[in-house]
Amino acid sequence: MTTTTPSPVYYARRFNEYMAELWRRRDFVWFLARGNIKARNASTVLGLAWWVLNPLLLGFVYFFIFGLIFPTQRDIAYLLSGIFVFHYSSQSMSGGANSIIGNSKLLVNIRFPRLILPIAFLLESTFGFLASLVVLYLIVIPFADVIPGPSILWLLVALPLQIVFNLGLAAATARLAVPFRDITNLIPYLTRIWLYMSPIIWPLSMLESVSETFQGLFRLNPMFPIIAVYRTALLGYPLAQADLVAMVAWCLAIGVIGVAMFIKFEGRMVRYL
């Protein structure tokens, strides 16, 4: 085994070598994701129950605010499906950045493809998302008369696409936040604006009351088609082909751009840690 430096991609000279190395280390990714869970379980009383409690509390808080106090959205199935899908993506921003910043010691001292860290975070948050979908059904089946139908098979399309989207998002955020730490402070605000721009706390019918250009602007939000496709899968909403196309395009674009940004930066990353 011979390795030399420098190289365009610091870890490996070629993209396919990089991917092969990632695959070779899949046990590490898996362990890292599970290790995080275990560590959390060891230090909290409720342990694994938090995977269910977190989305439940989140859903409760939003239903309290936007269903009861400012009743903009009383359709709990619509609200919760949106919240959970949104949360899964939005947390990959801070999670991606923290996976690098919080592991600086590891990065400075040990050589491995850095993308492993955001991927492990993503895997961990995927467990959480799946748990939140269970919570969703526990609430909406009795309280909103939603019965999951065959449309749930659309999850097999939506979930892999969102994983790609989230990976891109996590990687891009890490790329930007490592040299510019201010960004980590901005993330909560960006997340909030993004939430208000997404069809979650307001009904889709609200869009009809605004001008065409404004509508177009709202539809530029990648969360718009993503949530729409999920609502088809989870709640049996009719599927608009335009949404499906837009979701595929957004997810692939963000995934590719984010990962490329990250890998290109990887060689310089330790200098900012």
Partner: peptide
């Protein structure tokens, strides 16, 4: 250990490396 890329020059390593830095 090739966790830090030099600005100039290069490092050639032959063999499996273990680090305790």
């Amino acid at each position: 250990a090739r966790t830090l890329r030099p600005d100039e020059g290069r490092v050639v390593v032959r063999g499996r490396m273990s680090t305790l830095l």
